[in-house]
């Protein structure tokens, strides 16, 4: 593990509350740059809640509260002066179900850059569209139909379009919340290959129900259980000789 570079995200003693109930308790972990970090655990364990803390998506839910710190490049993302739009540009998110806007493929990709004022000129937008779609391994498929409705694409292609839409604003961190759960096995494999390519440039955090997917795509894996981070280890170690008995029991199907 290259330790030379400091982690891009540092989570320190993070607690998260839905109203009075504690959903995450004392989470501490480092997310390394240009690595894929997988978060696993049974439904309701807090892994998606944790993921949504990383770009403050939980802020949209009333009655939630955070304690502790999440530092992005040393900056506390919950500090009052943080601009949410800017934070979410730096820390993008891909959801379970592909959610393209009811617009053309082109307009989907340039939505972000237009919204944050990254580019206005047609030539700049064209460049962003080609770059983003190429990175999302979709350019060759759609380059001749950029003005078609995004919803005409197959589900796997829609998901890659959503990834392209996020890449268009040049994020540093990509959060993926079960990005393959709505996809068939081939489309799933394509997304997994894409993750492997994207990690050359981006830091990726992925929540997955599919333990084998975590084993296939990630460098480090965290197991959440009842709102706590039980173990956070290099993936190879996690799936061959985990440190915690609870991890062993979970990944061998003895509980959960």
């Amino acid at each position: 593990m290259p330790d030379a570079e400091p982690p891009i995200i540092q989570v320190r003693d993070l607690d998260f509350f839905y109203g009075p109930s504690l959903a995450l308790s004392k989470i501490n972990l480092d997310i390394r740059r240009r690595q894929v970090t997988a978060l696993i655990g049974p439904s309701g364990c807090g892994k998606s809640t944790f993921l949504r803390c990383l770009n403050r998506m939980n802020d949209t839910i009333p009655g939630t509260r955070v304690a502790g710190q999440i530092l992005l490049e040393g900056m506390d993302i919950y500090a009052p002066e943080v601009d949410l739009a800017h934070l979410r540009q730096r820390v993008g998110m891909v959801f379970q179900k592909p959610n393209p806007f009811p617009q053309t493929i082109f307009d989907n990709v340039v939505f972000g850059p237009r919204a944050v004022g990254l580019a206005r000129q047609r030539a700049d937008l064209d460049e962003i569209v080609e770059r983003s779609l190429t990175q999302a391994a979709l350019w060759d498929v759609v380059k001749d139909h950029l003005d078609e409705d995004a919803q005409s694409l197959a589900l796997g292609e829609q998901q890659r379009l959503c990834i392209a839409r996020m890449l268009a604003v040049k994020p540093e961190v990509i959060l993926m919340d079960e990005p393959c759960s709505a996809l068939d096995p081939i489309a799933t494999l394509e997304i997994e290959e894409l993750i492997a390519e994207l990690k050359a440039q981006y830091t990726i955090v992925i929540v997955t129900h599919n333990m084998q997917q975590a084993a296939r795509v990630s460098d480090e894996t965290g197991l959440f259980w009842l709102g706590e981070l039980v173990e956070f280890s290099p993936t190879q170690r996690m799936f061959t000789r985990p440190e915690q008995q609870l991890t062993e029991d979970y990944i061998t199907g003895r509980m959960g």
Binding site: M211, Q212, F239, T240, P242, E248
Partner: peptide, 9 residues
């Protein structure tokens, strides 16, 4: 069955 951890070992 894709065994992992002690099962795989």
């Amino acid at each position: 069955r894709q065994p992992a951890a002690s099962d795989l070992r």
